[in-house]
Write a protein that binds this DNA or RNA. Structure first.
Lengths: 340, 340
DNA sequence: TTGAAAGCGCTAACAC
DNA sequence: GTGTTAGCGCTTTCAA
């Protein structure tokens, strides 16, 4: 049997198509009063026929798709998924669907995702950007598409955003390590063009030029966003004679790679090496040892992103929204007093 | 500036809207010949105006949305994302978008996802089902919606499907453990209503009733699909006097929880306890010890699901498709000869 | 309180 | 080779 259409329902209920529309969109409370009997007739016909309004037609006419685009850099970091979870929960609760895409760390793809994918099939976009260099281009595309966008992770480029307070988070991590007496700290950050490395650690390095820079012998290692590379690079780092007594990684996922590398080299954690990371993914509490990490409230970030985006949809003229979520240090087992 | 429409392009190029449509849909090679000059004029106008066809209107008219629905049970098991990755890669390559949804292990939600979400906004659905009991209901919904569906994981219910060869995979795991001399094997499976537990281990248990059942003292533990529960339940299991010498978990994600529990109890792996699991997620090679596991080729499964679904879209009358992907035992560090 | 009808932007059958 | 035109299924003014 063919799918029932609005016309079928109207005929079955003995009313006009407009009336069906009114009932289904609950217009009867406000401007458009509908008699209870009519309403019931329509509802019955809808149930009988198993009628489901066509989202495309509805969208074409109303201008709203009730769909949000979500783009994340890669599919392997669990932190991203926790964000996705927050986004989906909130979006579904509010009656929005999610058109999902991963940019796979290729800037070309990220571009395409934004452009090709969202030919008015979404009302707005939630973007977890991967490439810093992309930002100017991004801005341009966004204005061309005239689609509201909220980015996860804030930079001052006049776009709605939500993110953790990176400098605060970083300071928490550094301070914890310093309190434990660590002076030789290694840093595992993402590639030069990617966001999380720069955002998270750069403010800290900046501050160093003024004061404690001399105190800390920086050992910065850039890794691709895979656990394999985190493993390989930390293996190299830890094989050096002058290896750090503590490592800060830009995310928990990398920290798992470091854990593995340390284990290969018979380096005990935290006795011989402290590790601290960011995110506090679920897994962080189940590694051996459990990870000391700076919690970034992924789910809240995801939910907040939806809220911000919908605010924008409801009011194009809103001032730029910028929400910062506090980061909290979670001390577990991967950090300890430095050995003398 | 308003988004350009087909009419704008037609005017700018000095042709009719139909011609624009022909050019953009590349109809000029086949039935509908278009002169090169016209084609170029149109293409230029498209570029000048930054024209992007409206996916909704196109879909409404053509009946195709170029969008696939993807539903997975929960967002935390990395194996699921690897499947998602395969799905997205293949789908995007073929010009399809992904409408994404997680059923979060609530059967109610899974139902809604299928019904409400996909009111003709997708051409077909890829479903990684979570609840066995849902299958009959599922079948009914599918026929009501008249939407092609492919399930990941096969059961004989007359739906296109793709999955690993579960009995083969299970036999691989069991045989490996038996070869190492293990007789007391514990099983960590998912809740009674969920698919992976039953599919993966049930055929094996069935076979046992006929022969080696006596040899193996089964210790079956049911866990919820969270790493926390896997951890908690294996802690209980391992505290027993008569604890198993080997544990089979239904996925690598659970195995990480077992690793953690063993570590808490100072049980050495693999010396005191062997662990074998399923999936071979990326992480499985970076735990300590690295996991012996039965590789399930998640990415290939995801890609295959898309292929199967598109076959179905192209030919409604195709016989039921059923693709099985061989499972391969990957021996790493979490299994060893049983101690005497 | 309800109905008639226009039209969202596009594709495809048909006409020229 | 190219243009005309009829809808796809819905929402929403306007009229009754």
């Amino acid at each position: 049997m063919k799918q029932a259409t609005q016309t079928d329902v109207a005929q079955a209920a003995g009313v006009s198509r407009a009336t069906v529309s009114y009932v289904l969109n609950e217009r009867y409370n406000s401007a458009m009063p509908i008699s209870t009997k009519t309403k019931e007739k329509v509802l019955k016909a809808v149930a009988d026929l198993g009628y489901n309004p066509d989202a495309r037609a509805r969208s074409l006419r109303s201008g709203k798709t009730q769909t949000l685009g979500l783009i994340i850099p890669n599919l392997h970091n669990p932190h991203h998924w926790e964000i996705v979870e927050g986004v989906m929960q909130k979006a579904h609760k509010l009656g929005y669907e999610i058109l999902f895409s991963s940019s796979d760390l290729e800037s070309k793809k990220e571009e395409n995702s934004i452009k090709a994918l969202f030919r008015r099939s979404v009302d707005g976009i939630i973007l977890l950007p991967s490439f810093i260099k992309l930002y100017p281009k991004l801005l341009q595309q966004i204005s061309e598409l005239q689609l509201p966008v909220v980015t996860i992770g804030c930079r001052d480029i006049g776009i709605d955003c939500i993110g953790s307070i990176d400098t605060e988070a970083t300071n928490n991590a550094i301070k914890h390590l310093e309190n434990l007496g660590h002076k030789k700290i290694g840093f595992l950050v993402t590639g030069e063009n990617q966001t999380s490395g720069e955002d998270r650690l750069y403010p800290y390095f900046q501050s160093l030029t003024k004061n404690k820079r001399a105190l800390i012998s920086k050992q910065i290692v850039r890794v691709k966003s895979t656990i394999e590379d985190a493993y390989r690079k930390s293996l190299e780092l830890l094989k050096k004679d002058n290896r750090p007594t503590a490592i800060i990684t830009v995310n928990d996922y990398f920290a798992v790679g470091v854990l593995r590398a340390a284990s290969d080299l018979n380096i005990n954690i935290p006795e011989d090496l402290s590790i601290i990371s960011f995110d506090d993914i679920l897994l962080a509490n189940f590694t051996s040892p459990r990870l000391t990490t700076v919690r970034l409230e992924a789910k809240a970030v995801g939910q907040g992103a939806v809220t911000i985006l919908l605010n924008r949809l409801n009011n194009k003229n809103l001032a730029i929204q910028k929400e910062r979520i506090p980061a909290k240090l979670i001390i577990r087992e991967s950090t300890a007093q430095v050995k003398l």
